[in-house]
Amino acid sequence: MSTPSAAAVARARRRATLGRFARDYRSHRAGLTGLAVLGFFCLVAVFAPLLADPAGLDVVKATAPGHMAPTLAYPLGTDENGRSILTLLIHGTRMSLLVGLAATAIAMVIGTAVGVTAGFYSGWPRSVLTAVSDWFLVIPFLPLAIVLATVLGASLLNIIVVIGVTSWPGTARLVAAQTLSVRERPYLERARALGGGDWHLMTRHVLPNVMPLVMAHVVLTVSVAILSETTLSFLGLGDPTRPSWGYILEHAFSTGAMSNNEWWFVVPPGVCVVLVVLAFTLVGRTLESVLNPRLKEAR
C-alpha cells in the first residue's frame, strides 16, 4: 500500500480540524443563535434590490405623504419625504454591514501587522509600535473619529477608513501578546536553526498560530464598527446619498419623529442595530471559547 503524500496528510488534518471546530461550535446554542441572526441579515443585504426597489430611495420619486403611519402598502410607514421606511431599512442593512465588515478588515490588517512585528522583534521596533498603539488606545475613540470624519468629508469610503484606522489597537495588543508566546516555542528555534528568515518565521509559523484568536476578536470588532458607523451617521457625518441604520435614526431625530411618537421611524432601525451587534457578540464569544484552549479547558 502506497504511503500518502504530504499534501494528502495536510488535507486530512485540515478536514479533521474543521470537523472538530464544527462539533465544538454546534455545542454552543448562543453561537448558533447569533449565526442564524447574522445569516438572516446577510441574506437581506445580498438580496436588498430584489426585496425593495432601489427607486424607492429617491426623494423625487416618492409619492406617499410624509410621516405616514404604518399601512398595508407601507408596513413601517414613511419618512418626512414620503419614502418607505421599510425600503430604507432593507437597503440600510447593506450599507451598515458593508461599513462594519470593510472597516474591520482594515483594522485587522493594520492590527495584525503591527502586533506581529511588535511581538516578534525586540528593542526599538517594539517600543515604537507599542507607543503608537498605546497612543491610539489613550485617545478617546469617538472624538478622534469625529475629527477625522469632519476633515475627510462625509462619504462611505471615508467613514470606512476612519473607523478602520481607529479600531486596530485592540487587535494589535492581542496579536502582540500571542506573538510573544509563540516566538518562545521550540519549533520556532528549530526553524531558525534550519535557515528560516524573519519573514518566513512570521508568515509560516507565527501568523498561523495567532490567526484563530485574531478571527474571534475580529468578529467582536465588527459589532463595534457597526455601532461606530451608526453613531457617526446619527451625528450627520455619514454618507447622505447611501442610507444606513444610523442615517435613518438621524433623520428621525432631525425631523421630530421621536417627539411626535412616530415609533415606526425610530424602533425598527434601533432594533436592527441591537440584533446585529448582539449576534456578532454571540458569535465572537463562541469563537473565542472554541478556539482558545484555556477557555475550552475551563468549561
Rank of each mutant, 00 (worst) to 15 (best):
L35G: 07
L89P: 08
G77E: 06
V132R: 04
D134F: 10
V44D: 04
G115W: 03
L89W: 08
V116D: 04
C42H: 02
V116M: 11
A48T: 00
V147Y: 13
M68R: 15
A48Y: 01
T63G: 00
P65Y: 03
G153V: 09
H91C: 01
A52M: 04
G111E: 03
H67G: 03
G123D: 12
K61D: 06
S122Q: 14
S133A: 14
L137N: 14
S127K: 08
M68A: 13
A102L: 15
L88T: 09
L98P: 01
G119V: 09
R126C: 02
A113E: 05
F41M: 07
G39M: 13
L157E: 09
P143I: 14
L50H: 10
W124G: 00
I160M: 09
S96A: 08
S122F: 07
V161A: 12
L98H: 02
V161K: 14
V161N: 08
T87F: 02
T87Y: 02
L129P: 11
L137D: 13
S96E: 01
S133W: 01
A36N: 05
F141A: 09
D79S: 04
A36V: 10
G56Y: 03
L152W: 07
I159E: 12
L157C: 07
A107E: 06
A145P: 08
V60R: 10
A52F: 01
L98T: 11
G56N: 08
L38I: 13
L144A: 13
F41A: 06
S133R: 05
F120D: 11
L129I: 10
Y74K: 04
G111P: 02
A73S: 05
F141C: 10
Y121M: 11
L38G: 11
I139P: 06
N158G: 13
G115L: 06
G100Y: 04
I90S: 00
L142G: 03
L157G: 04
V37P: 10
R126M: 06
V46L: 14
L50D: 11
F120R: 12
F141G: 12
V59K: 15
V109G: 05
P125E: 12
L142E: 08
S133M: 15
A145W: 12
L86V: 09
T78M: 10
A107M: 14
A102T: 13
F41N: 03
I160K: 07
M108Y: 14
P140N: 08
G39N: 09
A145R: 12
H91N: 03
T150Y: 13
V138N: 09
T87E: 02
A105G: 14
A149C: 05
A103E: 11
A107I: 08
A45N: 02
V109W: 10
L88P: 02
L142Q: 07
A118S: 11
L156A: 15
I139Y: 13
R126L: 00
L50M: 15
S96Q: 02
F40L: 15
D79I: 06
S127W: 01
